[in-house]
Design a protein around this nucleic acid. Structure first.
Lengths: 208, 208
DNA sequence: TCGGGCCGCAGACCTAGGTCCAAAGGCCTA
DNA sequence: TAGGCCTTTGGACCTAGGTCTGCGGCCCGA
């Protein structure tokens, strides 16, 4: 190996950044060249430092991981991105994979596995946690991504805040009938039975 | 200072444990004497190692932080417990404070602040994040803790899984009427309008 | 210019969810 | 033993939530 793999660590918690750093510093051929604590910082640091691989947390305040991925794609030579998250609900990671993440591991990996993942991603491989791979495989056949319209997403967000149809109608300045129409469409697309399940879906996927 | 403060780190993520370790090892007068990755391990390690302070994550698989706190209380000389969590919803921490936690900090503290918190807790102080303190203060006056009965908690968990009254009735082997009674009582105690809000409350407080 | 999707709205309709009132049996405690 | 809380259930009742069908207007791409 000529040069070490240059890694940028992106997470909103200093504790986690330090942990990853410590893990990786003892690994041969991997060098942590920088840190960022949100999506915006991630993109600017990536542009400045030109890392080979980015370890990216999905859940961050402000610009989140998915937004960062979109920003990274616009760079001329985008780095590989390995999503590292504690988010146990795998549905949240689907948008990330679609947005161009090269890999996905849970935050509870041990150091050697994490190093192996970084090397694999750097080599151009796509590395998915078994759960995610299964989700992608399963998702292709039946319904794939529930593709809500912008308006439906607005309504779903209100539902996920526990608002009633009447309140949502008032908030969006439409009739209650219209809200019902949207909710009905949402339930159909998400393949759930009622607004409670839709709300739970929304919080699980991080829409709230 | 004669002897360093003996600290036990409890978190389900190796990354976080390593990060906290690295933070604390450079601090004067603080020594990490052990780690545990769940509530059960926390109690046994606490009994074996007799740490002065435990850094405890609330969200863990299996035995969680609150359960661990209850187990720790039964030790003859219980150690101080500093809750360290990334859980941004402060309501989840109320049960922990009630269960005997001596302090509560967010996981995004910087190392000196964390060390200061550990020293304060070790000295017998109670250290609360401003958010939590405000919650406690506010919670005392109006309704404090919504104290659900065991049965109500069971029902609420089912509600928070998106189950209908009929399904819950079947699962708990009671009539749908009974479920309605419980749900109604739950809504009243939690001061929410419908089952969707109750479900959201449950997930926020980590009941799911 | 002709669909096709999205949005808003309406009427009719059905059902699940929720409230109020009442009551009975079990269990614990003063 | 009396009182209180929990659990269970019933009946009557009201309303929010959800479905189905259908319509008109808008915008955009073929």
């Amino acid at each position: 190996m000529a040069e070490p793999i240059r890694v940028l660590v992106v997470d909103d918690h200093p504790v986690v950044r330090q942990g990853l750093r410590t893990f990786l510093d003892v690994q041969e051929g991997i060098s942590v060249v920088g840190e960022a604590e949100d999506g915006a910082g991630c993109v600017t640091e990536a542009e400045r430092l030109r890392p080979d691989v980015i370890l990216l947390d999905l859940r961050m305040p402000g610009t989140d991981g998915v937004a960062a991925l979109q920003g990274l794609r616009d760079l001329d030579k985008p780095p590989r991105v390995l999503v590292v998250t504690s988010f146990t609900e795998p549905t949240a990671v689907l948008p990330a994979v679609r947005a161009g993440a090269s890999g996905y591991v849970y935050k509870d990996v041990d150091p050697p596995a994490l190093a192996a993942a970084i090397r694999a991603v750097h080599a151009g491989h796509v590395l998915l946690h078994p759960d995610v791979a299964r989700l992608l495989a399963a998702g292709d056949a039946p319904s794939a991504a529930p593709t809500l319209t912008a308006r439906e997403r607005e309504v779903l967000i209100e539902v996920a805040r526990g608002r009633s149809n009447r309140e949502i109608a008032k908030a969006l300045s439409v009739s209650e009938k219209t809200v019902k129409t949207h909710v009905s469409a949402i339930l159909g697309k998400l393949d759930v039975q009622d607004r409670t399940q839709a709300a739970l879906y929304a919080v699980r996927t991080g829409l709230v």
